[in-house]
Nucleic acid binder design. Structure first.
Length: 633
DNA sequence: CTAGGGTTAG
C-alpha cells in the first residue's frame, strides 16, 4: 500500500529553506549555462537534444543541477524516460527539482509505483518536497489507492495549495466523483485556468456538457487546452455539430491556433456527422498547418473517411501510415465490415497477422461483423471459437451479439437462441433486439413472442424492440396485435425515435425529418419527389412494400406515406442541388426503410448516380440499380 | 518552474 509507505516515512523537518539544500553550494548561472538551457528548451527532436547534451558534457557541465533538471524534463517529454533516469543517477546531490522531475516523468507515464518509490527515496535522503512535488506524489498515491487522499494533504499542511488542490480535483475527475469535485472546486479560494479546465474535463467526461460550457463561458482567458476540452467534450457526448461550431469559433473569433489534439476531436466529429467535405477540408487544414499526422491522428483520419463513406480515402491514409498500432488495424477492418466488404476485412485481418500485430477483442468485433453482414456463417463461427482457443481472448457480450446476429440473420434461429441461453454472461438488449429482428426476418412468430414476453417481464422493452415486435405482427397481417403494441407504447410513454436523414452540400449539413416542410427549397424538393414517383410507376421491378413499413411509423410520421420518408427528402434535395453524375451521400440515424432501399436502386439506375447511404448499422452503396449489401441486411 | 486536453467498438 503506497499510503502506508508514505505515512510511515517521517518527513524531514523544514528549517527555513531546508537544511539539506542550504548545505549544497548555490548553483551559479554563467552565460554558457543560460545559452545551453535555452537550447535544451528549444529542442523539438531527440536528435537536437542529444547534440546539446553532447556540448554540455564536453564543457564538463555534467554536474550542473539546473541543466540536468532541464535535460531530464526534455528527455521525458520526448518519451526517453531512460535517458532522464540516467542523468538523474549521474547527478551528485540532486536537489528538489531533480527529484521532482524524475517523480513527475514516471507519474506522467502512469508508472505510479515507481513515482512513489522515488518520492520516498527523496524523503529518506533528507530533501523536503515543495508543493508541486507533493501534489505529484499525492496524485500518484491517490490514483494507486483509487481515492483522493484528502486527509493526507491536510495532515502535512499542503491543503490549500493551488497545485495540490488541482491535483486532487483531477483525481476526482478520474474516479468519476463529480459531486466531490464540484464541492472541492467551489471551496477553493483561488481559481486558475488549469483548475477550471480540470473541472470542465470532469463535467465533459461524465456527460454534463452543459455545465462544462457554463464554466467555459465564465473563463477570463482561454488557451488551446480548454478549447480542446470543450470541442472534444461535445464530440464525445454526441454533439458533433456543436463541436464543429466551437472549432469555427476558435479559428475565427478567438484566432487560436489549433494543435493535433484539436483536429483529432474535430475529425471525430466529422466522422459522426458523415460530413465528407468538411472532413476533407480539415485534412488539408492539417497538412497546410504543418500539424504532424502521427499515429492517433492518422487512425482518426482513416476512421473518419470510412465513416463518411469514402473507403478509397481511408485506404490511402492507411497505406501512407508508417506506424500502425492495433487501433489502426481495427479501424481499417471495421471500416470494410461497415461497408459490407467482408472479403477485404478478412484479408486485412490476415495482413495484420502477417505484420506480427496481435489482434484484440475489438478486432474480433470487426471481423465477426464483417461475416454477419454477408452471411458467412461457417467462417464467422470458426473465428468466434478461434478467438478464445488460438488468441486467448474471452468472448464479451459484443462478440456473442455478433454471433447471434450472424446466425439469426442467416435463419439459424434455434442455434442463435441456444447460444443466448448458454451464455455465461447476461445477454444485453442488443442481443435480444438482434434475435427479435431475426424472428421478423424469418417470420418466426412463436420465438418472437417468447422473447418479447421475457423482455416485458424484465422491463427491458425499448422503443426499438417495440417496433421490431410490431413488425413481426405486421408481417403476418395481425393488425390487432399491432394496435395493441401501439397502445402499450403510448401508455408506457415510450416514444419512437424520429427518423432523420442528412446530406452535406457546400460544407453545410442539411437535415430532414419525415414529411419535413421546413427547408428553404421545399417546393423544388417536393416536385423532385413527384418526378421520382413517376420513375417508380414506370419501373417494372418496383413494388411498394407498404405492409412492411406502414406500421413502423412513429406518431410524428403517422398518416404520412412512404413517399416523404426522411431519406427520400435528403436524396431529392441532393439530386436538385448537385451536378449530374455526382455521388449522393446520405446519413440516416435509424436503419434504412425497406421500401426506400428499393427506391434508391431505381433512382441510381434512372439517374446514373451513385448513392452511398449510411444507416444506423452499415453502409449501402447503390450503383446502377443494385445495392452493395445484396439485399442482405 | 512544474498543474489541465486525444483515436477504435452493435
Amino acid at each position: 500500500m503506497p499510503t502506508a509507505t508514505l505515512m510511515s516515512i517521517p518527513l524531514p523537518i523544514p528549517s527555513g529553506k531546508g537544511r539539506s539544500q542550504a548545505s549544497l553550494p548555490p548553483p551559479r548561472q554563467s552565460g554558457l549555462q543560460g545559452t545551453l538551457s535555452a537550447l535544451i528548451e528549444k529542442s523539438r527532436t531527440l536528435n537536437d537534444l542529444l547534440q546539446v547534451h553532447a556540448v554540455l558534457l564536453r564543457r564538463g557541465l555534467h554536474q550542473d543541477r539546473i541543466l540536468n533538471f532541464k535535460l531530464q524534463r526534455a528527455y521525458s517529454s520526448l518519451g526517453c524516460l531512460d535517458n532522464s533516469i540516467w542523468i538523474f543517477n549521474c547527478t551528485l546531490n540532486p536537489d528538489v527539482f531533480n527529484w521532482t522531475a524524475i517523480i513527475h516523468s514516471h507519474a506522467q507515464l502512469g508508472l505510479h509505483d515507481r513515482a512513489m518509490v522515488y518520492f520516498v527515496d527523496m524523503l529518506c535522503s533528507g530533501i523536503y518536497p515543495n508543493a508541486f512535488t507533493f501534489s505529484v506524489a499525492l496524485k500518484s498515491a491517490s490514483i494507486k489507492s483509487g481515492k483522493p487522499l484528502h486527509s493526507l494533504a491536510f495532515k502535512l499542511g499542503f491543503y490549500s495549495d493551488l497545485y495540490v488542490e488541482t491535483g486532487l480535483l483531477d483525481v476526482y475527475a478520474r474516479t468519476g466523483d463529480v459531486a466531490s469535485a464540484k464541492k472541492l472546486f467551489d471551496e477553493m479560494d483561488q481559481r486558475s485556468l488549469v483548475s477550471m479546465t480540470t473541472m470542465m474535463t470532469c463535467y465533459a467526461k461524465h456527460g454534463e456538457i452543459g455545465n462544462a460550457k457554463f464554466l467555459f463561458d465564465e473563463m477570463p482567458d482561454r488557451d488551446v487546452v480548454c478549447w480542446n476540452v470543450m470541442i472534444s467534450g461535445y464530440a464525445q457526448n454526441g454533439f458533433p455539430n456543436e463541436a464543429l461550431l466551437m472549432f469555427r469559433r476558435m479559428l475565427s473569433d478567438a484566432k487560436m491556433k489549433p494543435d493535433e489534439v484539436t483536429v483529432l476531436a474535430v475529425i471525430s466529429a466529422c466522422g459522426q456527422i458523415g460530413a465528407l467535405e468538411t472532413g476533407r477540408w480539415i485534412h488539408s487544414f492539417i497538412e497546410n498547418n504543418d500539424i504532424c499526422i502521427n499515429l492517433h491522428l492518422g487512425t482518426a483520419l482513416l476512421d473518419m473517411y470510412s465513416k463518411c463513406g469514402s473507403l478509397e480515402d481511408a485506404r490511402l491514409v492507411f497505406e501512407r501510415m508508417t506506424d500502425k498500432d492495433v487501433v489502426t488495424w481495427n479501424s481499417m477492418i471495421s471500416g470494410y465490415a461497415m461497408h459490407g466488404f467482408s472479403g477485404h476485412a478478412l484479408e486485412t485481418f490476415d495482413e495484420m497477422l502477417r505484420a506480427g500485430m496481435k489482434p484484440n477483442d475489438i478486432t474480433f468485433v470487426g471481423i465477426l461483423n464483417a461475416c454477419s453482414h454477408t452471411g458467412m456463417v461457417q467462417e464467422g463461427q470458426n473465428l468466434f471459437y478461434m478467438m478464445k482457443s488460438k488468441y486467448g481472448i474471452e468472448p464479451k457480450v459484443e462478440h456473442y451479439g455478433c454471433l447471434v446476429n450472424l446466425l439469426g440473420r442467416a435463419g439459424h434461429l434455434e442455434e442463435a437462441y441456444n447460444i443466448v441461453k448458454g451464455m455465461n454472461i447476461e445477454p444485453d438488449i442488443v442481443i435480444w433486439s438482434s434475435l427479435l429482428g431475426a424472428c421478423g426476418l424469418h417470420n418466426d412468430l412463436v420465438l418472437g413472442e417468447e422473447i418479447a414476453e421475457l423482455l416485458i417481464k424484465q422491463n427491458q422493452m425499448r422503443s426499438g424492440t417495440y417496433t421490431l415486435l410490431s413488425n413481426i405482427y405486421a408481417n403476418s397481417g395481425n393488425w390487432v396485435e399491432v394496435a395493441r403494441i401501439r397502445s402499450m407504447m403510448k401508455s408506457k410513454g415510450v416514444e419512437k425515435e424520429k427518423g432523420c436523414s442528412s446530406i452535406e452540400l457546400d460544407n453545410t449539413v442539411h437535415e430532414f425529418l419525415a414529411g419535413d416542410m421546413n427547408h428553404p427549397k421545399c417546393q423544388e424538393i417536393y416536385s423532385m419527389l413527384e418526378e421520382i414517383n413517376g420513375w417508380l410507376r414506370a419501373a417494372e421491378d418496383y413494388e411498394p412494400q407498404t405492409n412492411k413499413v406502414l406500421h413502423d411509423l412513429g406518431d410524428a410520421e403517422k398518416g404520412q406515406s412512404l413517399e416523404v420518408h426522411s431519406e427520400r427528402l435528403a436524396i431529392a434535395f441532393g439530386l436538385i442541388s448537385s451536378r449530374p453524375g455526382t455521388t449522393i451521400r446520405v446519413v440516416k440515424n435509424l436503419r434504412v426503410c425497406p421500401d426506400c432501399h428499393e427506391v434508391c436502386k431505381v433512382i441510381s439506375r434512372v439517374t446514373g448516380r451513385k448513392i452511398i447511404m449510411r444507416d444506423r448499422n452499415r453502409f449501402h452503396h447503390f450503383v446502377d440499380g443494385c445495392c452493395s449489401c445484396d439485399d442482405f441486411w
